[in-house]
């Protein structure tokens, strides 16, 4: 702990390049250690104090505000290329306290504490009166929508059977009545199109994750599901040195490559028009 009488700290500008460098190391730390949910990006540096360390180095105490992006933590896309979740999509902010040790010009994290919270319903209503708010992830309609979407995905998929990993975001849309859900999946050793019991399928040793967005629309006499999934390239199990760019996201279509590209679904949370097609609607 750096605190104590007689110790003098300096307070650089929050927008100093050195402060920003420390904040970006903190952001990387968050995104590499989040067990679920979405990557966060730096929004604002609130405060910074720099304490001298004995025998050498400096300790940066830094408070930062972050914002949720649209990239799931399992998505290998670098956070710099991830879009920030917009207010009308019901943004989520993070509030973090970090301590980073700077030694020989390099930062390392020694302490981290973050809380995240969704924007208030009132703020969402200010920018969009009709936009749906975030729904509890264990809501029965949300869970049903995710399971129905995954079943539809597996039924159309020529590759591995995928299991539901995590429901990461959901919104209940009043008009037209529908449930929008985002979830992650994990590949198994079963073939998707074969009718197999999920209990008999094993997760692949070399994990293959996917991220899906789905809308379950209630119709007269039934429901209609639209789902797009992006399956991420399998990451090597060993930590061998990788060539430059090897960690970048490489979308792998897992459905019929002749299928038409994704039409806009009109659901919240989808990429803006003009985004490159990275998956297929089933």
């Amino acid at each position: 702990a750096p605190h104590g009488p007689g110790l003098i700290y300096r307070q650089p500008n929050c927008d100093d390049p050195e402060t920003e460098e420390a904040a970006l190391v903190a952001i990387d730390y968050i995104n590499q250690n989040l067990p679920w949910g979405y990557k966060h990006t730096l929004n604002q540096i609130d405060e910074v104090k720099v304490w001298p360390q004995q025998p050498s180095g400096e300790l940066f105490e830094i408070e930062i505000d972050t914002l949720e992006t649209t990239c799931h933590v399992l998505d290998p896309t670098p956070v710099a290329r991830c879009s920030v979740r917009q207010l009308k999509e019901h943004a989520v902010e993070g509030d973090c306290d970090f301590q980073l040790l700077k030694l020989d010009g390099k930062f390392s994290v020694v302490y981290a504490k973050c809380d995240s919270s969704p924007d208030s319903a009132e703020d969402v209503r200010k920018v969009c009166q009709d936009c749906p708010l975030l729904a509890p992830l264990n809501d029965t309609r949300v869970v049903h929508a995710a399971k129905a979407a995954l079943a539809a995905f597996n039924a159309q998929n020529n590759g591995s059977n995928f299991q539901l990993e995590e429901i990461s975001r959901a919104q209940l849309v009043p008009l037209p009545p529908s449930t929008y859900v985002e979830f992650t999946v994990s590949g198994t050793d079963c073939v998707a199109k074969e009718a197999t019991e999920a209990a008999k399928c094993n997760l692949l040793a070399e994990k293959q994750y996917g991220f899906c967005k789905a809308t379950l629309s209630e119709k007269l006499g039934g429901a209609e599901v639209a789902v797009t999934c992006m399956v991420f390239q399998t990451q090597p199990v060993s930590s061998q040195p990788q060539p430059e760019g090897a960690n970048e996201a490489v979308p792998t279509p897992v459905v019929d490559p002749d299928a038409p590209p994704s039409p806009p679904l009109g659901a919240p949370g989808l990429p803006p028009a003009g985004s490159p097609p990275d998956s297929h609607v089933l």
Binding site: P12, N13, D15, Q44, I45, E47, L67, D119
Partner: peptide, 27 residues
């Protein structure tokens, strides 16, 4: 003789060191 009235040093806007700039939007 025209005398320039004394003018104080041009004071630019004072930028507080913290908090820093907002990169996206405030929630």
């Amino acid at each position: 003789t025209v005398v320039q009235p004394s003018v104080g040093a041009a004071a630019g806007p004072v930028v507080p060191p913290c908090p820093g700039r907002i990169r996206h939007f405030k929630v």
